[in-house]
């Protein structure tokens, strides 16, 4: 059984968005993903990290934690902030819902994560922060026995 783990902590600056998604993609590349799978992962991580920056830490910088676990041909990614939290998760997940239309947000972040990954779980408490957990299985043929 293939197992691996990594953890990344960084400040909630928008310049770290590309840093975070590239690190996770590099970690995931040991599973021999296709270009499309890799780009799906990058996009999902970018959405979760961007949310932590602009929504979670709306009122000031904080630390974002990204963890990734590989178990066999599946990757599990956790993006966590200790920011303001989400009051209504169901509403937040609705396509096109955004609490910041003035910032030209599309409200499609969670929809992108849901579509590009196999599963999406959100845990959040108002005033305490948000955890976004996503999983994706790779269909690469070159599985390591």
């Amino acid at each position: 059984m293939e197992r691996n783990y990594m953890k990344l902590e960084f400040l909630s600056k928008s310049s770290n968005e590309s840093f975070a998604r590239v690190v996770v993609a590099a970690f995931a590349s040991q599973l021999d993903p296709t270009l499309e799978e890799l780009s799906d992962i990058k996009t999902a991580v970018s959405e979760a990290v961007t949310n932590a920056i602009i929504h979670g830490y709306e009122y000031g910088e904080g630390i974002i934690i990204v963890e990734a676990k590989i178990i066999d041909n599946e990757i599990e990614i956790l993006v966590e902030d200790k920011g303001m939290g989400i009051a209504d998760i169901k509403q937040a997940m609705e396509p096109f819902y955004t609490s910041k239309p003035n910032l030209e947000r599309s409200g499609m972040g969670f929809t992108v994560m849901e579509t590009f990954m196999d599963s999406l779980e959100i845990e959040s408490k108002k005033g305490e922060g948000t955890k976004v957990r996503m999983r994706k299985k790779f269909n690469s043929l070159s599985s390591k026995e």
């Binding site: 590309s18 780009s39 996009t43 959405e47 961007t50 030209e104 947000r105 599309s106 499609m108």
Partner: peptide, 10 residues
């Protein structure tokens, strides 16, 4: 080489 939902908003 990359675009996420921020591009949609733009």
């Amino acid at each position: 080489t990359f675009m996420d939902s921020s591009g949609i908003g733009l």
